[in-house]
Amino acid sequence: MSEHDRGGVYSVPGKAFTRDERYITDRITADGSGEGEWPVAAGRYRLVAARACPWANRTIIVRRLLGLEDAISLGTPGPVHDADSWTFDLDPGGADPVLGIPRIKDAYLARFGDYQRGITVPAIVDIASGEVVTNDFAQITLDFSTQWGAHHREGAPDLYPEHLRGELDELMRYIYTEVNNGVYRCGFAGSQQAYDEAFARLFSALDRLEDRLTGQRYLVGDTITEADVRLFTTLVRFDPVYHGHFKCNRAKLIEFAALWGYARDLFQTPGFGDTVDFAQIKAHYYEVHRDLNPSGIVPAGPELLGWLTEHGREALGGRPFGDGTAPPPVRAGEVAPTSI
């Protein structure tokens, strides 16, 4: 698998992990009038998001919480991509049923004939032209909240409240650098020193978040926000993948009282756990990362039933959806193939 298809420089002997952050920064905005902007239009775009990928999982969660299913369709590549790209091997005939392509790379090449950056998910594709619009995962979900409001479901929560954006932006940057990307710095460290430094940074951040969440139900304010979505997708992969595969093994998630309760609380909230496929998550990391796991053997554990146990976080107060409501059940055709 090429460096570009993994979305970053992972293992460089003697060096720390550095992620390739050169994304396509075009945006889909309400009027599409600015440079590099495309207009919001229901039915025009398709979100391509593999359930195995934490960055893509974010977009599936936010799309579901906001009720954008009718406005933006969803394509889900399989968890084990080939040397070229994420592939639609789970779909009949091995091609996305809307885009008609066997791999997401084709959408990148349709727009950029010699694309030299990461072939990553999530990606949003313009259906008519078959061209990729953006793969800027951090901006995609913010734009779902701020630009697609005309297509939000009735009762959609405010995941990016304007009066909290300063605090949210600062915290989300911290979560990205220290936790979301921190596990990768451990897993793909190119030297013992790089690993030791990454390990210390990661668990320092987890300890800090443990303290923060001991006395409050959610990260910012008393409702679920974008920050919770971003932390959740790393936490839900921690014990099945990052603890062993990425050597993040000072402690398991289940050994953090607050973080484990918080993660279960979110998992049991409609829109979170119902987007997660643990089998795909494990298949992706253990089968694709042959530099870390040459045999490709996928471990049988860990036990997952704990995700469904009582968490007691309601005692901290908070209203998951604020003045809004929970999303309806997952639509037919979008149910995660495997679940607990």
Rank of each mutant, 00 (worst) to 15 (best):
E37A: 14
I224A: 06
E310M: 08
G215P: 00
R250A: 14
N135V: 10
W148N: 15
D89F: 04
L213H: 09
D158M: 04
G155C: 14
W38D: 00
S191G: 09
A251T: 01
A30M: 03
T141V: 14
D143P: 09
E226F: 00
T29H: 01
G113L: 13
G8P: 00
D5V: 06
L213R: 10
R19D: 07
V298R: 02
R46Q: 13
W260H: 15
D5F: 12
Q139V: 15
D323H: 10
G7E: 02
P54K: 01
D91P: 09
I119C: 12
T214W: 05
T338N: 12
E178L: 02
V80L: 02
D96T: 03
G34R: 03
T146S: 14
Y262N: 07
P161F: 12
G306P: 01
L109W: 13
R230S: 08
K252N: 12
G221K: 04
V9N: 13
L308G: 13
P240T: 02
A150Y: 11
A123F: 09
L316T: 00
I60L: 14
R58C: 05
M1Y: 15
R19N: 00
N293L: 03
W307T: 08
G75W: 05
G43F: 04
L171W: 09
V335M: 14
D277A: 00
A123W: 07
